[in-house]
Design a protein around this nucleic acid. Structure first.
Lengths: 210, 210
DNA sequence: CAAGTTGTCTACCATATGGTAGATGAGCAG
DNA sequence: CTGCTCATCTACCATATGGTAGACAACTTG
């Protein structure tokens, strides 16, 4: 735990922005939760907007790094999709605020959204290229790779952050449920993405590795 | 156009809540856009919360009715999924605020979320039962029907409301793009949901109907 | 020790917000 | 005409909010 003040402020702001939302977070409340006064926050970050900006910057970097790390020792083909999805679900368990902030940034629109998307753009390009290559190789069903990416993004982020919808379908947002949601998403993506040939190949590869 | 005041207020509130968000909408601004004063709004709706409540209630009813209507003359099996998805995309084109409000309600949490989900609960149950029956009949791949529903919800709502993410992947949110997104989602859902047998059967059925 | 520098606080301020109280005028009933 | 209801408005109010100005104490540095 960093006892460094600006870092603590960023942590608390991430938590509140990512769960309660930006507008619903007041500097006074934020400072109160840290045992500080609002003016100390404004000493480190010149305005509320600037604070949001800093939170987004730091969070995007952490996100990008987490995904990058997950891809380091991932296999090839669908296993790479699986690695990314698993890392997102790991984040959902350990740092839910981070994914909450992604949604919140998208909701707030520019300039917050622009900042977040700019920081994640390398990942997006990489993912899009990867999907396209897989399709060219005939391992994945053909789709517009960018729209496919949006669909995957929506599904995964939704499965992970839509707490109220979860409740609406009668599923409590527990850790156990999260694991179930993960395997369900993976199964779904597998059948959605893979061509029949590639699916069969994946199955035999998994069977062999036991 | 209803020149009836409370109705006009509900319309404007739906528009602003569904696009800008609840907190970001002030009664003064809302009234201004209607050529009224805030006090007139508070005459018809005792508080801002009550206004949100009324907006949700009316919108949920309209949503439910639209889906219901789409299902009236829908076929069976996957064609029913298709009918629902098409009706959602039609709403996205004609009444985007409505879908924005669904997201916003989920984001706001109880009691707004509860109100929305309660109103849509019959549809949820019906959809869940339908999916389960299809699985039992061997026409759809086996999944937890409720989680599957959440996945479909997330994907479709995301494809339709995530304007900023759309921009991030380099796709402008035009009407033409919406049509492409719709066919992409449908193709994706078809391969994700249908068993190979059912997919083949659907293909021949479509070919025959030409 | 003297002179900054740094981090935090107290004291304000202007503005915006949701909400209340009461005046005003149009239309309708007797 | 009189009195009443309905719809809207003007005038406020209390509170919360983001932000500014400046005091003050603890460190650092010459």
């Amino acid at each position: 735990m960093s006892s460094n003040t600006p870092e603590r402020i960023l942590d608390a702001a991430l938590g509140s922005f990512g769960t309660r939302g930006y507008e619903a977070t007041s500097l006074d409340a934020l400072a109160g939760s840290l045992g500080l006064t609002k003016q100390t926050i404004l000493y480190w970050f010149p305005s509320k907007d600037a604070l949001l900006e800093a939170v987004i910057e730091r969070s995007a970097a952490e996100l990008a790094q987490a995904m990058q790390a997950a891809l380091e020792d991932a296999g090839s083909g669908f296993e790479r999709v699986e690695a990314v999805v698993r890392s997102v679900f790991r984040l959902a368990a350990r740092r839910p605020e981070l994914l909450g902030l992604v949604r919140e940034s998208a909701r707030l629109g520019p300039p917050a959204a622009t900042r977040m998307t700019l920081a994640l753009d390398p990942l997006v390009r990489r993912a899009s290229d990867f999907l396209e290559a897989e399709m060219d190789a005939g391992d994945m069903r053909r789709h517009d790779p960018r729209l496919l990416l949006l669909a995957i993004y929506s599904t995964v982020i939704g499965m992970v952050t839509e707490v109220e919808v979860l409740r609406a379908i009668g599923e409590e947002p527990t850790a156990r449920s999260l694991v179930r949601r993960r395997s369900d998403v993976l199964a779904l993506l597998r059948s959605a993405l893979l061509t029949d040939d590639a699916a069969a190949a994946l199955a035999t590869r998994i069977a062999a590795s036991r």
